[in-house]
């Protein structure tokens, strides 16, 4: 008798759990407007990427065309596949000292794996990950970018 009772309990319990599963998927099935997928080309005007999305490496400049890069080369050392090349130059400061500053921060987007190691290596937070994701170009050479803008200077107060 106990075996029969357990059998019926097992069957009913099984149905209860199955109905629970159906309830979860049914909630999604009958609210199809809550889908997660984005219709990409239609919504590109208002598409917002997530804060942690890694689109490309960029160097933010302020309104006076100043950046924070000291040209120390740590990002170049941190890069596992050589996507970053730092070309520095020496200038004479006003008090007659020689100082090494950045000339060109060359970034090969075509080689970059967006691993974020350069951003973490940077001591002055000069480079960050940008949100742009449409990188298709007609020529491979367009994927090589110079991150510091022409004529830009280092910001005041950035320590070496």
């Amino acid at each position: 008798m106990k075996a029969l009772f357990n059998y019926i309990k097992e069957v009913l319990g099984g149905f209860y759990t199955l109905l629970q599963g159906l309830g979860v998927t049914g909630k999604y099935l009958f609210t199809p407007w809550n889908y997660v997928t984005q219709s990409y080309p239609e919504n590109r005007e208002k598409l917002q990427m997530f804060e942690r999305f890694r689109g490309e490496v960029i160097m933010p400049h302020n309104e006076n065309n100043e950046h924070k890069c000291t040209g120390c080369g740590l990002c170049e050392l941190a890069c596992p596949n050589g996507s970053i090349e730092i070309i520095s130059k020496s200038i004479l400061t006003e008090d007659g000292k020689k100082k090494r500053i950045i000339d060109k921060h060359i970034y090969h987007l075509g080689m970059c794996t967006l691993c974020n190691l350069c951003v973490r290596a940077c001591p002055s937070d000069a480079i960050i990950m940008g949100q742009k994701y449409e990188h298709a170009v007609y020529n491979r050479s367009n994927l090589t970018k110079v991150l510091n803008k022409p004529g830009s200077k280092i910001m005041e107060g950035i320590k070496e």
Binding site: T25, Y28, L29, P32
Partner: peptide
């Protein structure tokens, strides 16, 4: 379409 709706996708569109 049903499979897509259950998985919160759009399906063929």
């Amino acid at each position: 379409k049903v499979c897509a709706a259950i998985q919160q996708r759009i399906g063929p569109n």
